[in-house]
Nucleic acid binder design. Structure first.
Lengths: 268, 268
DNA sequence: CGATGTGAACATTTTCACAGCA
DNA sequence: TGCTGTGAAAATGTTCACATCG
């Protein structure tokens, strides 16, 4: 995605496809991460091969979609048999760029930030937390999860020094944009934003947001809609029928989407 | 969405459009929640009207999309002028079902659950936390955020008694499915899942997931892709050019989508 | 005149359905 | 025979562009 100077993002008449090669769909990337987790679990349980049917069941998607997604990796399956778990894991890790580490900085050591910091290195390794920041004087210097908290003013310097590539914003909404700017100044390339604000960033910075309020409101919408359906409710709607994978609609895009609530979190 | 008994979700040749009326796109619903937050902020600052241009800027989408989204509410704008903030707020709240309260139960009072419980009522009111659950004997009975923690075995009974409609799962992944089943048994209609597992639920239950690992891995993918682009980097890519709203791709679907890593989360 | 509301063009994503290979 | 890989169709979602109306 060639960065667009300003104004409306990506506004070009026809765009002669520029340089972009094959490029794998955003939606597929998100699912690959899920497949990876499922595959890791299977691997730990000793499985060596899986069929698209099995894997798709476990991941909660249909098999056609799964195969299409995996096809973006290349052809690593064996017709009539299935896929080798180990191969799939490697290939997905390769595509997702998990073969190298991505240093993380957590800003805002409140409830959520604290939880994240205590994580002591994010999911499945590969995302070591290497810097913590806050404004609270009482927190500066205090080790959280083994790492001392630094002052937000030092974000640019410290991020640059330590080669942080991902910044996690877990501050109150009012501080978020300022923190974001400093992270960018520090050379951070991606931001995971838990604050309920729409961040303004240069085109080359990737932002993803997690917003509790938005999630709850979307659920609220569905509850409401269900109530409306109180009409032609033929067939089997509320009947405790078969149980199937959630298969909901979290295919979030990132950008401007849902933001929301207040901030907290974490768990493993 | 008529519930599909079992097997592959929604597998029907052509589906004669059944009963579904107009129905507003999932993607739009997520954005409406964002508009609502932005509008609330504007309202607090005394703004009484907004143009699609202003609002879209603040929300990080383009004006056409914003107008299309708002059109699902009905026609509440004034040509040549814009929209009345108050009207928009009311209409969005109506569509999102925010005119009534949705009682929330939080399961798993660890780092995340604790943070959520302390929230003392979720974002912008409308989502009061009315029950807390955990397995830890040391926690049972202890008030967290003013509410005593109950045992997970009592999930079905208590949820039913208190009329909980939304369950938040903040437990370790191993307990998630079991908790989910009990929430469903207790009559909960929607689930917000912070555990990195694909939940199996009856078709009439709405599930949304928040997965830190998946988010980080998606960001990792973009870092990696950026590295690859190290080729024909003409134009202005890394140049600190204009700053624009994030507008990323968090348009998550929910269902079977991205799940992910280990579990953590949240904010404010 | 200026901004909304929207049909139609376009783009992306999902699903189908089946050829092809182990 | 059975399952992968994929072209093509269908569905969804986004953007354009402009008629319309306050």
């Amino acid at each position: 995605m060639p960065a667009v100077p300003a104004g409306e993002p990506g506004r070009n008449g026809d765009a002669p496809e520029a340089v972009r090669a094959k490029s794998i769909p955003e939606a597929a990337v998100a699912r690959l991460a899920v497949y990876l987790r499922v595959l890791s679990g299977m691997s730990e349980q000793g499985a060596t091969t899986v069929s698209s049917e099995e894997l798709s069941q476990a991941a909660g998607v249909n098999s056609a979609k799964l195969r299409k997604d995996l096809s973006y990796l290349g052809s690593y399956g064996t017709r009539g048999v299935g896929y080798e778990v180990g191969v799939l894991v490697s290939q997905i890790e390769r595509i997702l760029g998990l073969t190298r580490q991505h240093k993380v900085a957590v800003v805002g050591i409140g409830n959520l930030g604290h939880a994240l910091a205590n994580y002591g290195g994010f999911p499945g390794r590969g995302f070591p937390v290497e810097a913590l920041f806050d404004l609270d004087a009482d927190l500066i210097g205090v080790p959280v999860g083994g790492l001392p908290v630094s002052h937000m003013d030092d974000i640019p310097r410290i991020c640059a020094e330590r080669g942080i590539s991902i910044g996690v914003i877990a501050t109150p909404p009012t501080a978020a944009q300022s923190v974001c700017d400093r992270l960018v100044a520090g050379g951070v390339q991606c931001i995971l934003n838990f604050a309920p604000v729409v961040l303004q960033v240069p085109a080359h910075i990737e932002v993803r947001k997690v917003d509790l309020a938005v999630e709850l409101q979307i659920l609220s919408f569905h509850v409401a809609r269900r109530a409306d359906d109180a009409a032609g409710n033929q067939g089997n709607s509320g009947l405790p029928g078969a149980v199937v994978p959630a298969e909901n609609g979290n295919g979030r895009r990132n950008g401007t989407g849902p933001d929301g609530g207040r901030g907290m979190v974490v768990r493993s």
